[in-house]
Nucleic acid binder design. Structure first.
Lengths: 164, 164
DNA sequence: TCAAGAAAGTGGACATGTCAACCTTTTCGT
DNA sequence: ACGAAAAGGTTGACATGTCCACTTTCTTGA
């Protein structure tokens, strides 16, 4: 037994972690969300979903509603409600999308731009902090691994391949 | 540009993913949860949290409430409510914990054991399916990387180190 | 061209997750 | 042995996330 497995045992109480990859990822996701919320709450009351939308538009990505929604990874219904809250609180305005009248475009107000200017450096520092915790090899490996898992998580067809 | 970055771009619309590690992990976590829910719903109405509790006890881990709660990674309040639902629906019973009267012990009923027997093989197959999507190097790397990130996600002290 | 289907946003219902206050039991220091 | 502090469980309030039905707009094919 090496020191790595010892370290891991501390976080789970001694389970065989090979059985718990989804569980470990879920726990990590929760901790990352809590950390992001802690940073956001230092400077205001933006929720994570609200921040993601602001950040996407601030980055200069396409501001059409569907593009923003897909970049944010937020559910259709939740996206609609979150944008309306952002409007009510004066962070964004919208205008009709010229080439598709079902959609709209998201425009940041000065308030959102100011919030972004305050928050972005701290979130960038956090990102650097997280990456610094990984070895070079881990840093190179992890995004492809996450992507491979995400693809494998999109289907449950493997359960009845024998029935086809 | 290699084919890896191309593949990743497809899932995000062309963003610089080096900036989005927490986002990617959150998205992955959501997909894994949806996949698990899809499997659970094929055989009954157990929620993810309910299933985790049953699985932990079925594995023979210590059945005292605190031990089960920590293994499950579930919030104290949510754990209390979830256990009560499991009792109401006849999946578990409890008895006082002999050495700590604040706690209780969780005992599975036949109904829970039967549900576990039906579900465990499918979730094991899913675990195998996920692991098969990774290369050998990724498989070895990923749990230590997750653990390192989880540790780094537990603090925001890096934000004001200069003020100490 | 026009009817059918797909895609987009909205709103409601419901499930899940988070947080804090509270009470009880245990632990620890004196 | 005793009081204070910590740990455990419960409950309620609230935030977040998921799912579905519905309307409008766009796209497609006959």
């Amino acid at each position: 037994m090496n020191d790595q497995s010892e370290t891991l045992e501390q976080t789970t109480g001694g389970l065989d972690l090979a059985l718990l990859l989804p569980f470990q990822i879920t726990q990590l996701s929760g901790k990352l969300a809590a950390q992001a919320r802690a940073i956001l709450s230092r400077h205001g009351t933006l929720s994570l979903a609200q921040w993601r939308i602001i950040r996407i538009v601030a980055m200069g990505l396409p501001p059409q509603s569907t593009a923003v929604r897909k970049s944010s990874g937020i559910d259709k219904g939740q996206f609609s409600k979150t944008v309306n809250v952002l409007i009510d609180e004066g962070y964004v305005t919208t205008r009709p999308c010229p080439f598709d009248h079902r959609q709209f475009e998201v425009i940041l107000t000065d308030k959102a731009i100011a919030a972004h200017a305050r928050l972005a450096p701290e979130l960038d520092a956090r990102q650097a902090h997280l990456l610094a915790a990984l070895t070079d090899a881990q840093r190179e490996m992890i995004l492809p691994a996450i992507h491979a898992l995400a693809k494998a998580a999109e289907t449950i067809d493997f359960l009845n391949k024998d029935k086809d």
